[in-house]
Design a protein around this nucleic acid. Structure first.
Length: 649
RNA sequence: GCUGGUGUAGCUCAGAGGUAGAGCGCUGUCCUCGUAAGACAGAUGUCGCCGGUUCGAAUCCGGCCACCAGCUCCA
């Protein structure tokens, strides 16, 4: 019998060919045995160099072997993928006519899609979850089986699993496919999986929702069941609790509780009213950003909210963006359209006179309010609305300036979002899909120069990013910065997009040193993205407890009794004179009541004044998070506020 | 737009064919108070909208609107 060499974390071992990871695991300690969910093998003879495999998959080459647990992302995926199979098995038992689609693990759990005659009810989910528990208890071994595609096709044809057949049709016809069996259940699946269903410890179904087959709305709608799975009941409970806490940070709830903004049927869905508390934050954010723009060489421009339909025909929006635009307004027999974007106006400014290479790059910014028709089901608080203000800008430059301009702009974007406390964001480089060049405008040559220029700029800044093939706009590649909301969903914030289309359509040119006309490269960019969305994300990021520089009320003076009112007002006057937003709670209530109010409103500082403070000319300082800080001279409080402002705390 | 769910006081929610309820908040009066809710009293309202069934509809039926979760799409 031939031996293979398996290298574990603590050194190599020689084992007979065909030994399984599980057999090797048997020689390790109990914890390792209890925690392993799958194995990762690395080696020259492994397809792709490394692979995650079942614990029962025989090894037939020299490999490095690493056991994966739930704590490894890959291990977690295996665990949850197996949970999805248990879900499918339970559904097949209770609803034999259900057709299986797909059931992958996702970031925080798993789902499985089914084609069923009637959608699942909450009661169905309970029953299914019960059946899953029975399947877990039965501890069916999970077997992998490699078969020829034709055999698999037979099997699924007999089982009437049309979606599995569709998937089979897209797999390479001459490579074996893998089937996974547990009890009476069989699924077409690449795996890997847990050794047995009993290995699952805490599983919970969360909700059901419709989802189109293959994510295409022309396809039939399937019923998707979402669930999650953890290694222990306690971890599952902790996760559910975290979801609950996230709900408390939801900007829609805080927006109302903190009186920041509102949306009304009478105004219209997706149309936001900013209240004074939200308005001051927006004002401060815009003010800060505007200063930064000027400092970085931007010009400020303004444009109207409507424009002649002809402009949108030139820009191409009328052709390819029509479904997002509102119906025309008739003015003296001419059609005008509400702007869904600001760019055409900036094109016209560029074109308003001849341009020289000497004046490039030109950077023009506008806080432009745009109007887009969004389908009714997609609106979401401040994060997805129908009228929003972009901190839009267009940069016109020569091709040789692209990389530098991109770099400067990414840098600007980071400075802005980090100033607001966002340090955990995700950069995505959206590239074209070279398979479908017909979907993009601009020559191959320009794409081939531009894409590496974007990547190069990110590399030079040592920024980690995810390249995304096929995510580019049809008019050019882009860099997006994604920010998470309270529930972990990612939203596009800053975006920097190259545009090969509009300079062409508007026939923009500049005179080069050769005295000939050249086409400028145009870059769209928005750093907040939209003020509405950014505000929504800002609310969730801080849980409503805005940093001092943004807090609508920075300090509230709380007099203990009526006789301290004059002193309270005097304190407030001095704080206000120093430039802060301060108010006095003059209501005839107990201190505890007023403090509770201020805490709930997340006012950063409470300045409590009574006999002692009045006597000593001090203030009893309380911070919303740190609590009672004792007596402070006013001058020191002002110094502390100044320091908070400086550090954007 | 699609699938499912939900719309009752400002908020959170109970009520399920017989004339609208709680807590918080709000208003008033009293209390003059030392770090997250003082006491008492009062007012909350087109039960999302329109239509139907019924002697009678918040409740049953139909249509519409909005919201929530997901899908598709996107700043």
């Amino acid at each position: 019998m031939s031996l293979i060499r398996v290298t574990l974390a603590d050194g190599p071992v020689e084992v007979p060919r065909g030994t399984t990871p599980r057999e090797i695991l048997a020689s390790l300690d109990r914890d390792a045995q209890a925690n392993a969910v799958a194995a990762r093998v690395t080696g020259e003879q492994i397809v792709g160099g490394e692979q995650v495999i079942d614990l029962d998959r025989p090894l037939d080459a020299d490999v490095e072997l690493e056991f994966l647990t739930f704590d490894d992302e890959a291990g977690r995926e295996v665990y949850r993928h197996s949970a999805a199979h248990v879900l499918a098995q339970a559904v097949k038992r209770l609803f034999p006519e259900a057709r299986l689609a797909i059931g992958p693990p996702i970031e925080e759990g798993f789902y499985y899609d089914f084609d069923v005659a009637r959608p699942f009810t909450p009661e169905d989910l309970e029953a299914i979850e019960g059946e899953m528990q029975a399947i877990i208890k039965a501890d069916y071994p999970i077997h992998r089986e490699a078969v020829e595609p034709e055999a698999a096709r037979h099997l699924f044809r007999d089982l009437n699993e049309q979606y599995k057949l569709e998937i089979l049709d897209e797999l390479p016809p001459d490579e074996p496919v893998s089937l996974y069996r547990q009890g009476e259940f069989v699924d077409l699946c690449r795996g890997p999986h847990l050794p047995s269903t009993g290995r699952l410890r805490a599983v919970k179904l969360l909700h059901a929702a419709g989802a189109y087959w293959r994510g295409d709305e022309r396809n039939p709608m399937l019923q998707r069941i979402y669930g999650t799975a953890f290694e222990s009941r306690a971890d599952l409970d902790a996760y559910l609790k975290r979801l609950e806490e996230a709900r408390r940070r939801d900007h829609r709830r805080l927006g109302r509780d903190l009186d920041l903004y509102s949306i009304h049927d009478e105004v219209g869905p997706g149309l936001v009213l900013w209240h004074p508390n939200g308005g001051i934050i927006r004002h401060l954010a815009e003010d800060f950003a505007r200063q930064e723009h000027l400092r970085r060489g931007y010009g400020l421009v303004y444009s109207p909210h409507i424009a002649n339909r002809r402009l949108w025909e030139i820009s191409g929006h009328w052709d390819w963006y029509k479904e997002n635009m509102y119906t025309p307004i008739d003015i003296d027999g001419v059609e005008y359209l509400l702007k869904p974007m600001n760019c055409p106006f900036h094109m016209m400014i560029y074109r308003s006179r001849p341009r020289s290479y000497k004046e490039l790059p030109l950077r023009w910014a506008e806080w432009g309010t745009v109007y887009r028709y969004e389908r009714s089901g997609v609106l979401h608080g401040l994060l997805r609305v129908r009228a929003f203000t972009q901190d839009d800008a267009h940069i016109f430059c020569r091709e040789d300036q692209v990389e530098e301009v991109i770099q400067e702009t990414v840098d600007f974007a980071r400075d802005i979002i980090e100033a607001f406390g966002f340090h955990d964001y995700h950069v995505r480089l959206s590239l074209r899909d070279p398979e479908t060049p017909e979907k993009y405008v601009g020559s191959d040559a320009i794409w081939e120069r531009a894409e590496p220029a974007l990547a190069g700029a990110l590399d030079r800044m040592s920024l980690e990013y995810t390249p995304a093939r096929g995510e580019a706009n049809f008019y050019g590649p882009k860099i997006d910065i994604l920010i998470r909301d309270a529930l972990g969903r990612e939203w596009q914030g800053p975006t920097i997009q190259l545009d090969f289309n509009l300079p062409e359509r508007f026939d923009l040119t500049y005179k080069g040193p050769d005295n000939r006309d050249h086409r400028p490269v145009m870059i769209h960019r928005a750093l907040f993205g939209s003020m509405e969305r950014f505000f929504g994300l800002l609310i969730e990021h801080h849980g409503g407890a805005f940093p001092v520089w943004l807090a609508p009320v920075q300090a509230r003076v709380i007099p203990i009794g009526e006789r301290h009112l004059d002193y309270a007002r005097a304190v407030a006057d001095r704080v206000r004179a120093a430039g802060y937003r301060v108010e006095v709670d003059e209501r005839d209530e107990k201190v505890g009541y007023k403090i509770r109010q201020a805490q709930l409103e997340k006012v950063p500082y409470m300045l409590v004044v009574g006999d002692r403070e009045q006597q000593d000319q001090t203030v009893a300082l309380r911070h919303r998070a740190e609590g009672d800080l004792g007596p402070w001279p006013l001058a020191e409080i002002l110094a502390r506020l100044a320091e908070d402002l400086r550090l954007r705390r």
